[in-house]
Amino acid sequence: MVIQTKGLSLTFQTNDGPVHALQDVTLNINKGDFVSFIGPSGCGKTTLLRCIAALETPTSGGLSINGRSAEDARRARAYGYVFQAAGLYPWRTIAGNIKLPLEIMRFSKSDKKERVAKVLKLVDLDGFGNKFPWQLSGGMQQRASIARALAFDADILLMDEPFGALDEIVRDRLNEELLALWARTGKTIGFVTHSIPEAVYLSTRIVVMSPRPGRITDVIESPLPKERPLDIRDSPEFIEIAQRVREGLRAGHGDVR
């Protein structure tokens, strides 16, 4: 068990009264899992990911990562985090951006160079190390930000709608590449999305969430094989899971439509 939450709740106090961002979330994520969090906006999927990353502190409930608290896990640099926007520092080159966590974590000079070259290759950005972020397309920037999260080789990768702002075609390619990367590295991945096909295509488990209060309504184990070409999305199994996700989303949304 890599990530374990038990009765996790988070309430924000706002001027309009308390907002229950998360309520009683219990979930176990095993090593090597690819878990997607899907749901409409306001369902707490990003908040849950941020709790795991210790960027948000739960109001109550248990949360452990690798057997310790989220805060300790963050201090131990247990995860790499990919934000919705690539968030590359514009004054650093692509290689410089990937080097950033390595500099902070005080990797040796030769190790830094080696790792940058390795992850650049991993995300297929060979030869772009000396470019500045603005010289790259949105998809390439997002790949660079994934490379940055991979550079220090944490076992957990947390991704918050990393492809949300990209067009369908680029998104498909990056999804495919992400799966290949996951297969190669064996990392545990937490992935927030609001796209049903994306969630079904990528995940070993799909966590369906719903808003007000943010909670889990369904957890779906994917029967799809680990090897997934893009056209698996036309297979009956795929369509069946997508159907179930859709139903889960609808059930949690009983008050609307």
């Binding site: 934000f83 968030g87 966590p101 902070i104 220090f152």
Partner: peptide, 27 residues
């Protein structure tokens, strides 16, 4: 620096000094 830029460094458990030197100052 935007909130995400700062949070990124938080996920690296960067020190206040590193945050200043590598993010705030260049920005």
């Amino acid at each position: 620096p935007a909130r995400e830029d700062l949070e990124l460094l938080k996920t690296y458990n960067a020190s206040g000094f590193a945050t200043f030197w590598k993010l705030r100052l260049p920005a």
